[in-house]
Design a protein around this nucleic acid. Structure first.
Length: 426
RNA sequence: GGAGGGGUGGCUGAGUGGACGAAAGCACCGGUCUUGAAAACCGGCGUGCCGCAAGGUACCGGGGGUUCGAAUCCCUCCCCCUCCGCCA
């Protein structure tokens, strides 16, 4: 959520920021109008309330003296009616303001490249070489079916398309990766491991910015005001909703969760196999930091995610997302992508974003400054990293001519000494 | 799910219609004292909104109501605790 005061003071900057995200910025005029009338009504009604408070006290005093107050009471009752009327109007304006504010995306940081869509994203770096094979590389689906690592057909039978069913070594590989990532981030990067709810209420979803915009992209349980989380970012950031944080920052939090996405409107895209699922696992990293340090923290968050794929000996590249391709809450965002020989394309496995105070303002997450004033924290999030496409990359990059898959050395201890994936009977 | 008891500031906890944004204690911050510290004493110490400011206004789990006036009374929802039931 943007700061209404900032909109009041510098509407042009806000208009420019919204336009950079290819969104309609005429909302700013409407906001200014509502804000002005709200303040006028507030001044008015607070004056009336002040009068009423004074008069009520006088009535109390008079009654103690045993005097008759019938007339005064009648006039104060009239005051009260006026107040109720204006209060009702203010409430409506507040609602209208909030409805508008809550739908405006975050303003892009000045360093975020301008652009309308993904073609405007800027490559930052590429690490490693695209693997070449002296045989025709198979896709992860072919490899997985051959080695019995997963079974999408049977998954479809129980839940419809887009749900994972990992079997045998496939399931073990995923668990090993989770364990590896959590250990790495805890031991070397200082994150605290959290186990969270995977259903959250609408207030939490609004706090991190999934609602109202992504309502159709989430699975919900309307009878209970609960949504299945689309990312671990939701519960992690919402831990401190409506709080003034009284512990030393920065806070580094991580959670391994299931994530659920309806992917409405994604039909027809690259949805085969593990590339795009309604349910997937992810290790999520969240930082809650002092505003002065959030851009340094974004760089180190990105490094934390990159360390995962480097240790796994994978070929990756980093993109700086442009204004038109960034998610709703982000002011600046890096994507990490892995090379997929089977797709002959890059696969996104992590987005590392600095949301600045956007989520903090929505969710009421504050800290106390040196001068004792209360201010909003900055929040950052990034995948560290998402599992399905990571598995795709490991399978497709590690595949051998004989149909087996060589595992990265760092995973071997997590697989109880297994160095390559092969058929159990082989 | 049933019965009962509760939700008040960072924490503990008083407050049952007016002088209560709210006692007291703890914690915290500043000061006095001290070589320093502790103790003692003095002072400060919630958040939002409106306002250049003075100040005003709102908030005692959420929402609604009664009243000139609500932390206090009524309705409703949520949450917590105890007991019973059920259950992984």
């Amino acid at each position: 959520m943007l700061d209404i005061k900032q909109i009041r003071e510098d509407p042009d900057a806000i208009r420019a920021g919204i336009a950079a995200r290819a969104e309609d910025n005429s909302v700013v005029d409407r906001l200014l109008e509502l804000d002005a009338s709200r303040r006028a009504m507030l001044t008015n009604v607070e004056e009336l309330k002040s009068k009423r408070n004074k008069a009520s006290k006088e009535i109390g005093a008079l009654k103690k003296q045993g005097k008759d107050t019938t007339d005064t009471q009648a006039s104060v009752r009239d005051l009260g009616n006026q107040i109720d009327k204006i209060d009702g109007e203010i409430k409506q304006v507040d609602q209208d303001l909030r409805e508008l504010l809550i739908r405006i995306p975050n303003l892009p940081h000045s360093s975020t490249p301008r652009g309308a869509d993904e073609s405007g994203n800027v490559p930052v770096c590429e690490h490693g070489e695209k693997k070449t094979f002296d045989f025709k590389p198979r896709t992860h689906i072919e490899i997985g079916e051959h080695l019995c690592l997963f079974d999408f057909q049977r998954a479809t039978r129980m839940a419809g398309s887009g749900f994972p069913l990992l079997t045998g070594l496939g399931a073990r590989l995923q668990r090993a990766l989770v364990q590896f990532m959590l250990d790495l981030h805890r031991e070397e990067h200082g994150y605290t491991e959290i186990s969270t709810p995977i259903l959250c209420g609408s207030k939490a979803m609004t706090g991190t910015g999934q609602l109202p915009k992504l309502d159709d992209d989430m699975y919900k349980l309307p009878g209970d005001d609960l949504y299945l989380i689309p990312t671990g970012e939701v519960p992690l950031v919402n831990i401190f909703r409506e709080e003034i944080i009284d512990r030393p920052m920065p806070l580094y939090l991580m959670a391994h969760t299931q994530c659920f996405r309806r992917e409405a409107g994604a039909a027809g895209k690259t949805t085969r196999g593990m590339l795009r699922l309604h349910q997937f696992e992810k290790v999520e990293l969240v930082k809650i930091v002092h505003p002065d340090s959030s851009y340094d923290e974004l760089e180190s968050l990105l490094k934390n995610a990159l360390t995962v794929v480097e240790r796994l000996e994978l070929n990756y590249r980093v993109l700086e997302l442009c204004t038109g391709d960034m998610s709703f809450a982000a002011a600046k965002c890096y994507d990490v992508e892995l090379w997929s020989p089977g797709q002959n394309d890059w696969l996104e496995v992590s987005s590392c974003s600095n949301c600045e105070a956007f989520q903090a303002r929505r969710a009421g997450i504050r800290y106390r400054r040196e001068d004792k004033k209360v201010d909003f924290v900055h929040t950052l999030n990034g995948s560290g990293v998402a599992l399905p496409r990571l598995i795709v990359a490991i399978l497709e990059n590690g595949q051998q001519a004989d149909g087996t898959v060589k595992l990265p050395a760092v995973l071997v201890p997590y697989m109880n000494g297994i160095e390559k994936l092969e058929l159990p009977s082989a």
